[in-house]
Amino acid sequence: MEEIRLRRALIGMCGTQVVSWGALYYALPVATAQIAGTTGWTPGTITLACSAGLLVAAVAGIPVGRLLDRYGPRPVMTAGSALAAELYPPVFAAITCWYGERRARPLTVVTLVGGLASTVFAPLTALLVDHVGRRASYLVYAAVFLLVNLPVHWLLLTPAWPDHRT
């Protein structure tokens, strides 16, 4: 039974990583021209803001890692989906803990599947930006986080999590 729960969790994390990387990272280069045109920001400023966001994520990684140790990936990654802020680090931590010595294959699988994000989201973002604009495109992505990623994390990240508080 636990092996089935691990497999479901891995499949779920693969799918949510495609959405997360696609919406949070790969959509920006496609939407940059429209963002610059409507805000007056330069593409360099937009890229700098994205880089600053990645630095904030790196700093937040320390307390998020503590939350993962204490509560496990299910509540932490569900909350990350609600905030539209979840990339590889908590996934890698969950896989490493759940699979232990067998972690190489699932880490490879989630990384390879996550690599499809640009293939899916670059053209999807271009289509959305052209038809509904950049703001509405990001609202669509926010809805996908709430309607897809959040329930997937809550429903599928159920394998047992060891108590790391000791």
Score class of each variant (00 low, 15 high):
A160S: 11
G115Q: 14
H131A: 14
T45S: 10
Y88Q: 06
L116D: 04
V19Q: 00
L24T: 01
I95T: 00
R102D: 10
T119P: 05
L124D: 13
L24A: 07
R66V: 13
L156S: 05
G53S: 06
G37S: 01
T39C: 05
V152F: 09
Y88F: 13
V91K: 03
V18G: 04
A9Y: 00
L10V: 10
V113I: 09
M77D: 05
I35Y: 04
V120S: 02
I46V: 14
Y141F: 15
A23H: 02
W41V: 11
L124Y: 10
D130W: 06
H164V: 03
S137G: 10
L157C: 09
S51V: 10
V132M: 14
Y26I: 01
G53Y: 04
P89F: 04
W98L: 02
P162C: 02
L157K: 00
L124R: 04
G44T: 10
V132P: 14
G133F: 14
H164P: 05
G72F: 08
T38P: 13
C14R: 12
T96A: 10
I35D: 12
L107H: 04
V144G: 15
R74M: 02
A117C: 03
L68D: 00
T166A: 14
G12W: 00
H153M: 08
V18H: 01
L67S: 09
P90L: 03
G37I: 00
L124H: 10
H164L: 08
R7A: 14
I95N: 05
P162H: 06
Y26E: 02
G40A: 08
R105I: 12
V91P: 03
P73N: 06
G65A: 01
V110R: 00
V110N: 10
L127C: 09
A52M: 13
A126W: 01
G44H: 14
V148H: 02
M1D: 15
A9E: 00
V18C: 07
A23G: 06
Y141S: 09
Y25T: 11
R103I: 02
T125C: 12
A117G: 08
A142L: 13
R7Y: 05
L83G: 12
L28Y: 13
A143H: 08
P75G: 00
L24Y: 09
F145K: 10
T39V: 03
P89Y: 04
Q17T: 06
Q34F: 13
T32S: 12
V109K: 00
M13K: 03
W98P: 09
A136G: 08
E2C: 07
V148W: 10
A49C: 12
A142G: 13
L146M: 07
A58N: 13
R135Y: 09
G65M: 00
L10F: 00
L10S: 01
L28N: 08
P90M: 02
S81P: 02
E2I: 09
